[in-house]
Structure formats: C-alpha cells, structure tokens
C-alpha cells in the first residue's frame, strides 16, 4: 500500500509540474501549447542520456535548458503568427519529438527505450526501499517549481504577461515588448516541462516512446482548466484531484464485478471528461481565481477599493 501511495504521489507530482508549466504558458501568458508531451519527452530523454555522464543534477539542468531552448526557438518561429498558429506548430513539435524518439535508434534506443537511468540520492536510501528518498524528492521539486512560478505570477512580470494575454495591442501601446515577453514565458514553461520529464525518467528508471502519449497534454489542460487559469494553487489542487481520481477509480473493479477491467478503464476516462465538462458549465472560472494585487496592500491604513 505504501509503495502504491508513493507511486500515486510521484505521478501527481509529475502531472503537477507539467500543469504548473502549462498554467504559466497558457493560463498566465495566453500561449496555447498542444505539444506539452513533446517537451516532457525531450526533458525525460535528455535527463536519461546525460545523467550517466553528468550526474542527475547535470542531467536535470540539461533537460530544463534544452527544453527552454526548444521553446524559445518554437516561440520565435510561430509567436508572431498568433494563437491558432502556435497551437498548430506545437502539435507538430510534439509529433516530431515522438517520431525522432522512435526512429533515431542510435541515440534513443528506438521503441526499446533507455534502461538503467540513474536516480538521485540512491546512496541515502536504505536497501530495497528507494521510496523514502523518491517521495520527498518529488515533493521538493514541485515545491521549488511552484515557489518560482508563484513568485513570477505575483510579480510585475506576471502582471505584464496577463496584460499581453488579454490584449497584446494594448500592451504594446503601453511600451511593453510583447514578443520578448511571450518568448520568455514560453521558455520558462518549457524549462519546467523539462524538469517534469526528468522526474518521470528518474522515477521509472526506464523510458520508451510509448510512455509519452498525448494524454499527458490532455491531463495538463484538464488540470489548468479545473484549477482556474492563472492560479498555481488552484492548479495543484486540480492536478492532484484529477490524478487521484484517475488512479483511485482503478479499485472500482473490485467493487463492481459486473464490468471487466477494459470497460472500466474506458469508463474512468469518460468520467474524467464528463467531470471537466460539468466543471466548465458549473464553474467555468475554475476552482480558484488568479491572484491580484489589492489597493490595501499598498495603503494598509485606509480602505481603498471595495
């Protein structure tokens, strides 16, 4: 049971990292990214390939850096074209990564993937019980990324990104360098996806292309929509709820013996989809609103605003 809970929490952590990244790109800065899984895969493979020579820290930094560079490149290519085109280009990026991973056997091992990925802090773990290290490691990683992104969202940088999201023309009329801001937001989100990919690789110690399907992108969008666009805290709750529901409903088959496992797994995904639709109808703004600066933060002694 403990092992299962660890698995669940690590899965939630990976989903939360991916969700936090997408929330920054799409929720805060308004940049649609349908290629989320491509960045996660790029991060996972970079960590898997570079951790043996560089150590896990080096592997993880390399994964974040490479994903940030790829994001920058993609953003510069497509951001001038506007929303819909960015969506198309990112879908294309996701596919390119998948096909490269499958076919460049010399580097990625093709469909067989990469085994024996080194793990962080192995020497600290008691024999046969790596979970006691992995669990805090995953949680600390989420906490660190959350802290950085939350600081950014609440700063003037987050505010100017929201302005660019709402109306890029108005933002440029106020002297804001829209293109540069968009590239930065996309690169920061990309870096966080790289970190998520490395955690995925460290956890499984074995990766292959079949682990990186579009469902990762779909879960990330669900988490952002459920949590409320722009709210990192809402995102953590959203990602946690969705992943827990997906995992917990596995046990339904013990209770309901009328349906078999395959039917149940299809029903589970359907139920999640239904949940998102209901959420969009009943609470379209998500669980939590995005943070705002209030007048009383600046003028605590008087009652400004309402």
């Amino acid at each position: 049971m403990i092992a299962y809970l660890t698995t669940l929490i690590v899965l939630v952590s990976v989903a939360a990292l991916v969700g936090l990244a997408l929330n920054f790109q799409w929720g805060v800065a308004g940049l649609v990214n349908f290629g989320v899984v491509g960045f996660v895969a790029l991060g996972a493979y970079t960590a898997a390939l570079l951790s043996p020579p560089l150590g896990w820290v080096g592997g993880m930094i390399a994964a974040a850096t490479l994903c940030a560079i790829a994001s920058t490149f993609l953003a510069l290519l497509s951001i001038r074209l506007g929303d819909d085109y960015l969506a198309i280009v990112t879908i294309g990026f996701g596919e390119i990564v998948r096909i490269l991973l499958l076919n460049e056997d010399w580097l990625t091992g093709g469909a067989l993937g990469i085994p024996n990925i080194p793990r962080p802090f192995v020497s600290l773990a008691p024999a046969g019980n790596y979970d006691v290290v992995l669990l805090p490691f995953a949680l600390l990683l989420v906490a660190a990324v959350y802290l950085v992104l939350e600081t950014l969202v609440r700063s003037p940088f987050g505010r100017v990104l929201r302005a660019v999201r709402d109306d890029a023309t108005a933002a440029s009329a106020l002297g804001k360098p829209v293109l540069l801001l968009r590239v930065k937001a996309f690169a920061i989100g990309g870096a966080a996806m790289g970190v998520a990919g490395s955690l995925h690789a460290f956890y499984l110690t074995y990766i292959d292309p079949s682990q990186f399907t579009s469902i990762i992108t779909a879960y990330a969008f669900m988490a952002v929509i459920a949590g409320g666009r722009g709210s990192n805290t809402g995102l953590l709750i959203g990602a946690g709820t969705i992943m827990t529901l997906i995992e917990a409903t596995r046990f339904l088959k013990d209770v309901m013996q009328v349906i078999d496992g395959a039917q149940l797994s299809a029903l589970r995904l359907g139920a999640i989809g239904l949940g998102i639709v209901l959420l969009l109808i009943l609470r379209p703004q998500g669980l939590l609103p995005e943070p705002h600066r209030r007048a009383r933060e600046f003028f605590p002694t008087e009652k400004g605003g309402q």
């Binding site: 505010r159 109306d167 023309t169 106020l174």
Partner: peptide, 19 residues
C-alpha cells in the same frame, strides 16, 4: 489610446495603472 477601448479585462483598475 484606442477608439474601441482596450481595457485589460484580467487586471483590476489599480493593476492596469501599475502596469
């Protein structure tokens, strides 16, 4: 400024000035 107002709908009144 613009003929059709471009308010930044995701920002509060104070935030749009701080921007």
């Amino acid at each position: 400024t613009f003929q059709i107002v471009r308010e930044l709908s995701g920002l509060t009144v104070l935030e749009s000035l701080l921007l």
